[in-house]
């Protein structure tokens, strides 16, 4: 994928669809890509896309209600858009999607001491960083985020314009294996693992804010009547926060990893999310964000569903629809 092609295609979309604004990335002072809102054809000359991007841009969609918005989208972002459409957060005709190929995104926390270093570019499975006069070339595969290593939908599922190029193949299956190992642990040991993770959380809510599926205007953590948890970042309350969020995302999360990359403390969010998604996929044969018009797995009831639907007024043991 060449940046020139991307610029031309996005400008074409902006012109043809008479867009109000365009969501993409531009180079930051550190060389890593940062999200940007483009409001003119000329400004789109700065649009860029490579593995140094981090956020899922779909997270910005709900703030532009009523506007005609363009957006560049690799696989996971396009799936988030499908869910936002299905959940009534944006209408398809306001949205113009430029699909982009994706080689996976860098997890900056993996860079360790190189974190603050300048990003130069990425080509052929490598990327280069610069510190002072020194140039370091690193293999992309070693620094990709866990979600990207495991990604099985790297190409866009929804688009109006498409930039040709190759996307990452061969999901590693590591995340799946990690979830399996956690499920096989005894409940006590599993709790111990998640307590350790929860200990790190400082409740900055960067994960929630970085997530396109966390669009609730008022989140349960902020409710004071009832109050589900206190603002003290201690293990018990942190677990309530992390686990409840995961429940709210079961069958809605596209495993883009935006939350995990945004988390300043490196809390293991992906294993919980992947576990919830796997459960939904096994129980309901459902993968989120693949088809427009589909109802959310936990938002409808089907006769083939594996469990009873316990509703008000029904006697115990009776299936709701029989």
């Amino acid at each position: 994928m060449r940046t020139d092609d991307l610029i031309l295609k996005c400008q074409e979309a902006f012109r043809e669809k008479e867009l109000d604004l365009f969501l993409g990335f531009e180079r930051s002072s550190s060389g890593f890509l940062k999200p940007a809102v483009f409001t003119s054809l000329e400004s789109l000359e700065k649009i860029s896309w490579d593995p140094s991007a981090s956020l899922n841009l779909a997270t910005f969609i709900p703030r532009f209600k009523g506007k005609k918005v363009g957006i560049i989208a690799p696989g996971c972002v396009s799936r988030s858009l499908v869910i936002l459409i299905n959940e009534g957060q944006v209408s398809r005709d306001r949205l113009t999607v430029v699909g982009v190929p994706c080689q996976g995104l860098i997890e900056r926390k993996k860079l360790g001491d190189l974190k603050g270093v300048r990003f130069l570019d990425s080509q052929n499975g490598k990327f280069t960083l610069q510190r002072g006069g020194q140039i370091v070339e690193l293999p992309l595969e070693d620094y990709l985020s866990e979600s990207c290593l495991d990604c099985d939908h790297s190409g866009p599922v929804l688009y109006d314009y498409l930039i040709e190029g190759s996307s990452r193949k061969n999901p590693s299956g590591n995340l799946e294996k990690r979830v399996k190992a956690l499920v096989e642990l005894s409940p006590g040991k599993r709790l111990l693992y998640f307590k350790k993770e929860a200990e790190k959380c400082i409740r900055c809510y960067a994960c929630r804010q970085a997530c396109p599926m966390c669009y609730c205007e008022s989140c349960f953590v902020e409710s004071s009547e009832p109050r589900w948890l206190t603002a003290v970042p201690e293990v018990a309350d942190n677990l309530i926060w992390l686990l409840t969020r995961v429940y709210h995302l079961a069958g809605r999360c596209v495993q883009c990893g935006s939350c995990a990359r945004a988390c300043p403390e490196g809390v293991d969010l992906m294993s919980l999310l992947a576990w919830a998604n796997q459960s939904v996929s096994e129980l309901f044969q459902y993968q989120p964000g693949l088809e427009i018009g589909e109802k959310p797995a936990l938002g409808e009831y089907r006769l083939e569903d594996p469990d009873f639907f316990w509703g008000g007024g029904l006697t115990e043991g009776k299936k709701c629809c029989s």
């Binding site: 809102v37 956020l55 900055c204 809510y205 960067a206 804010q209 945004a262 300043p264």
Partner: peptide, 13 residues
């Protein structure tokens, strides 16, 4: 503020 997420990573630290 156009691309700020409204998290508290910056102000906490």
């Amino acid at each position: 503020s156009s691309t700020c997420l409204g998290c508290a990573s910056c102000t906490y630290l």
